[in-house]
Design a protein around this nucleic acid. Structure first.
Lengths: 165, 165
DNA sequence: TATATACCCTAGCATTCTACTCAGGTTTAA
DNA sequence: TTAAACCTGAGTAGAATGCTAGGGTATATA
């Protein structure tokens, strides 16, 4: 079973995409700033998300990423699967060859657990997350932070330009 | 979230203990043979299980380990916790300081998932595993294998002793 | 009292994975 | 033409896993 920052980052980034779906393609630079995830790392994650047909990309200026289908049809389990390869809790990948080719004593237990986690994460769509009040609140906070940083950057730019001119 | 061979080995070993509870203290050597887990590794795991008061030990010949309480009162979550330290799915240990001191976008989602997994594993006692037919079948197979190996070892011993005498 | 069985403890180590960085591309709107 | 964006592969520090090695210490039995 693997559920680490990798999978969490992927879900966070996809949720950011869903939250800003109305603003056209979303650049990784924007996600990077809002969610504080390294840009290069995001690029690697989105490479896998694209391979798994969860997002589509638009190249060139003004480009970015879009969800490849409505947020109602994208589930957390799919995202974690895409970057982590597996949310399987068994050691044998469910094959039952965990104790030297045969079934180990606790094989069935881990199968049950895997199913449990998978069912849970498969039942949660991006749309259902977007609808949550706690998530909306956090999202608004992050948007404001980003706007503030952008304003500061612009003001620095004006000063620099003025002193150069 | 961590759920790897370490936690699986620990649960397997504890289940082995529960299955052979009637035979007095169980030696790690026996568990090592039946479950094919390295003896030294088992010693490390049992050190943690003992610290967490899940097993008690008997030293000297004929010694070994015993469950520290009835198998009805020992749950899988406790075992995984003992060796893995945490089955928490969040990055912040549940504190909500996951995005630079503040709450990240998906914090609540991972909290929910952690609760889900914990509830599941907390509901499964060693006794309920012992009662499962699929586990009984695997256990019988492993006991037979061990008995067979023991018989072979004894016969080798006789040959060696005979040739020496 | 000697011996062997078993628990106990610490250190180290190869391998794997994570979470990046770096250094280059290529595409395309303006 | 420029620059914003996507795209790709290689490399890397640090942490964790799953061990091994080599010492103990306690105690039942001969």
């Amino acid at each position: 079973m693997r559920l680490t920052t990798k999978g969490r980052y992927a879900v966070t980034a996809m949720l950011d995409l869903a939250l800003h779906a109305d603003n056209g393609p979303i650049s990784l630079a924007g996600i990077s700033k809002r969610q504080e995830i390294s840009l290069s790392y995001l690029e690697q994650l989105f490479s896998k998300l694209r391979q798994n047909d969860l997002v589509s990309s638009v190249r060139g200026p003004g480009g970015g990423y879009r969800l490849s289908r409505p947020s109602e049809e994208i589930f957390v389990a799919q995202i974690v699967d895409a970057v982590n390869e597996s949310i399987d809790a068994t050691n044998c990948g469910g094959s039952g060859s965990c104790r030297n080719g045969a079934t180990c004593l606790t094989h069935h237990l881990w199968c049950d657990l895997s199913e449990q986690i998978h069912d849970f994460l498969s039942g949660i769509s991006l749309a259902s997350l977007v609808a949550r009040k706690d998530i909306q609140e956090v999202s608004e906070r992050l948007d404001k932070e980003e706007a503030l940083q952008q304003a500061e950057a612009n003001s620095m730019q004006r000063i620099t330009t003025a002193s150069l001119g």
